[in-house]
Design a protein around this nucleic acid. Sequence first.
RNA 1: GCCGGGAUGGCGGAAUUGGUAGACGCGCCGGACUCAAAAUCCGGUUCUGGCAACAGAGUGAGAGUUCGAGUCUCUCUCCCGGCACCA
Length: 823
Amino acid sequence: MQNTSPAAYNPHEIEPLVQQEWDRLRAFEAKEDEQREKFYCLSMFPYPSGHLHMGHVRNYTIGDVISRYQRMTGKNVMQPMGWDAFGLPAENAAIQNGVPPAEWTYGNIAYMRTQLRRLGYAYDWSRELATCDPKYYRWEQWFFTRLYEKGLVYRKKAMVNWDPVDQTVLANEQVIEGHGWRSGARIERKEVTQWFLKITAYAEDLLKDLEQLEGWPDQVKTMQANWIGRSQGVEIKFDVSSEYTLNVFTTRPDTLFGVTYIAVAPEHELAVQAAEDSPEIAAFLQECASTRVSEAEISTLEKKGMDTGLYAVHPMTEERIPIWIANFVLIEYGSGAVMSVPAHDQRDWEFASAFGLPVRPVVYPDKDSASVDVSRCAFLEKGWLQNSAQFDGLSSDQAFDAIARELERCDKGRRLVNYRLRDWGISRQRYWGCPIPIINCSHCGAVPVPDRDLPVVLPEEVDFDKGLSPLQSAPGFYEVSCPKCRGAATRELDTFDTFFESSWYFARYCSVDNDSSMLDDRARYWMPVDQYVGGVEHAVLHLLYARFFHKLMRDAGMSASDEPFMNLLTQGMVLKDGAKMSKSRGNTVDPQELIDKYGADTVRLFVIFAAPPSHNLEWSDSAVEGSYRFINKLWRLVESHAGHGMAHRDGMAPEGLGPGQTELRRKTHETIKRVTDSMGRRYAFNTAVASNMELVNAIADFEDPSPTGRKVCQEALEAVVRMLAPILPHVCHVLWHRLGHEEPVYRTAWPSLDSSALKREVVEMVVQVNGKKRGTVSVPAGMDNNGIEQAARDNENVLRFIENREITKVVVVPGRIVNIVVN
RNA sequence: GCCGGGAUGGCGGAAUUGGUAGACGCGCCGGACUCAAAAUCCGGUUCUGGCAACAGAGUGAGAGUUCGAGUCUCUCUCCCGGCACCA
């Protein structure tokens, strides 16, 4: 792997030295400077699970390449790093190994920090933060109490997965085929009172501002828009009894006369009420309650239902409509009840077919259609109404308005904009999280912890042996007096969803050392983030919560911008054997072994070169060897050039160059042009590497010891070393000095393009006959279309295909192609 | 089930605005150097036929638009991500 000559590339020798040099120079500490254009580059911070995995390495290398590139273009760059330190795995480790979560977490952070440093990322470590640090979470507790005052926080009951044996709430991930992962007990859905943030109050804002995000991938914006799911419709009242009315939302009020039943969720109060008198219904509800609280689970269930025996009154026809319980209706969405129109909705149609409920068509494809076929599936399109009393003959769109107006007139409904988005449940029945700063008092109710008592510090010395959450057996923590009445009260024992911490960390990096406020003017300088880099799996949840939280901070006067992340790069996953690398699959590759073997630069080059950032990356051992080989080749090239003394490129006269010199110089500047575009605009870092490899190959083939030749070679090498410096910062740091420069390469300017070097006198063009390539012709640059066409027709091989044929058309695209169309 | 994405040689990928499909790298084959190996260097490498020039086929499947389609449109298959308590 290594040879022993003194000039050989040895990453283990140079990398620590270069890193010491950066530390000595405080190279990457960012200072606010109003005179300079700032660039805030952020990678999604890791959960400190123990070791870096290849996904981290890929994510952070991409972020670092962007940071270092932007620095070379002259921007004032800030790139911080921290730890998303609260979460479930720490509790699992505590249960399994008896190590307190805090100790486990801080130990992991210490190790992973050394791994990140070893990879040479240009982080400003003075801004490092960990979300489990009270200095961090005190501010989210403080902010939560502000939101509480503003009325953006409320409490309601919501479903959780309940393990009846372990007596704990389980995350969706901890439910394996309907059973608790530890106890194996059949899980139950259970209602628990929890805290919610009114993200729905910002639904319109979150949707509308997607338009501002020109630097986000369309796919992510589409997913967010669909997740928010704005729909216009009508909320309709179906009376069940004199004192009870069901409100159902529909986007198709034109199908109102086709309603043949109402479906409610198994948790709906009407279902629960019906179960009281019917053991069969009670058994059905129990069955429904043994599935996970996840939409994926519920929507893939076999459609099941049961008649409640209750009826609702149709608001127009006053017909009695049966009320059914359906296992696919979500209690969390809307009112947990839907009006069912089997003739015009496929899911309703399937349910009606399974349970023998009537199918009543009311929308027909044409104004005078005699019939519409709903015997095999529902008719989903809009059309013209029949069987709809006074609305017969109207189009679906006309009927939407007419029926909505009539419902509003007789107070049986109202037009409504509905969102699929649900309020954000932030309570977790967990220990290792940020305590929710609320005190529950029997007199005063829920009372926010006053500012003077913040932070509410999570006790870190705890006992995990007793099964319950350690907080429940820590009276010293939860026995408090009420801030209002001074009476005995208890602390809220739930902690925040960990998405809470990750929804504002990007802002806190700017003001990380401020002990007197959450954010300050420095956040106004750095925010918004110019480039955010992270896994595509966060396209909806994390990125939506962060956008929401940022708007909350904006509305609290802490931020000037509407959106937190100007540009977003969603990176693909690292796969092996076609599957995501994970412990459970046993297909992980430990990046540490690679770093130990090849050094940081090789690992960085591999993850950058193997695939474009947004694609999944298929792991390959041999490709790593290739990266190492390339660095060696570059090293040898610079060594052998510099070994013959310095050759400065300054003052070179492009006029006096020979053909080979002109060619290399053109290649150099073509590469600068392409790589600059790949790095700065396209984020196609893999092809930036490929272009540099081509130039390196051209330099290696260029053997010209003349003084002019050495100048051309020096220019080419300087360009390559600077263009690769963001990807290979250690080796390029050394090679840049070797090429005779004092200033460290990370501080030098990105190479600039000399357009005059790109000029060509002759261009090669492809000649097609009927769209098939039949030859190439070389023509002088700037030749007119007639000249090009003539040259194409004269081509020997082309002649074979156009002789004795009638030419019907000739397409000439100068500089590219000639297509001769013959009969 | 719903939402989003993907599919190109033996492999990872390239083709930027509809204009030479396979850049660059890996692997493999052959050669040079070497006692030998490693490293390095040179040549070849989509498939089929041909000594070659060249010809035919070819970007998951099927249709369509176009002088020209990997790229645009429609239908389908398979794979991946997300689905609100994994982070």
